[in-house]
Deep mutational scan, measured.
Amino acid sequence: ADDEVAKLLVDAYRKNDEDKLEEVKKRYNISDEQVKRLIRKVL
């Protein structure tokens, strides 16, 4: 599931889509710190 979330985050990140990032964060209840970590893992 982590990889799936990471893909969604990276996708939103690449598109610079703040709304999507927020949506994913809320849906999976993850912190900014986790977001950064997941994005770093993929990029």
Score class of each variant (00 low, 15 high):
E23P: 01
V5G: 04
R40Q: 13
D3V: 10
K41H: 10
N16E: 06
V35P: 00
V10Y: 14
E23L: 07
R14W: 13
I39Y: 02
K26V: 07
D2C: 15
D32T: 07
A12K: 00
D19A: 15
L38S: 02
Y13H: 04
N29H: 08
L38P: 00
D19F: 12
L38V: 05
V5W: 12
R14Y: 13
R27K: 13
V24T: 05
D3Y: 12
E18F: 15
R14G: 04
N16D: 06
D11Q: 07
R14A: 08
K26L: 11
L38E: 01
R40D: 12
S31Y: 01
A1D: 13
K15E: 12
I30G: 00
V24W: 05
K7P: 03
A1Q: 11
I30S: 00
L38H: 02
L8W: 05
E22Q: 11
D17E: 05
K36H: 11
V42K: 07
V24M: 11
D11V: 04
K36A: 13
R14N: 10
K15T: 12
V10H: 07
K36Y: 08
Y13L: 10
V35I: 09
A12E: 01
L43F: 10
K7A: 13
R40Y: 14
A6I: 15
L8T: 04
K15S: 13
R37E: 14
K26Y: 06
V10W: 15
I30D: 00
K26P: 00
N16L: 06
R40V: 08
E23I: 06
L38D: 00
R27N: 05
D32E: 08
D3A: 11
D3H: 10
K26E: 05
K41T: 10
E4G: 07
N29P: 00
I30Q: 01
R14E: 10
E33V: 07
A1I: 15
N16Q: 10
V42W: 15
A12H: 03
E18D: 11
D32C: 10
D17Q: 06
I39T: 02
K26S: 08
R40F: 14
K41A: 12
V42P: 02
A12I: 04
N29L: 05
K15M: 13
I30W: 09
N16W: 07
I39P: 01
D2G: 09
R14F: 15
D17T: 02
N29I: 02
R37G: 08
L43D: 04
A12G: 02
A1N: 13
R27M: 12
E23Y: 10
K15D: 11
L8C: 09
V5S: 03
E33S: 08
K7V: 07
Y28E: 00
N16F: 07
D2Q: 09
V10A: 12
R14D: 05
L43S: 05
A12F: 05
K26R: 13
Q34C: 10
V24K: 00
K20H: 05
V24S: 01
K20F: 11
R27I: 09
R37K: 12
K15I: 08
E18R: 15
K25P: 00
N16V: 03
S31T: 13
D11M: 06
D17M: 05
A6G: 07
E33F: 06
Q34V: 11
V5K: 02
I39V: 07
V10D: 02
R27A: 10
N29E: 05
L9A: 02
R37W: 10
D3N: 09
K26N: 08
E33K: 06
V35N: 01
E22T: 09
Y28H: 04
D3P: 09
N29G: 13
D3Q: 09
K36M: 14
N29W: 02
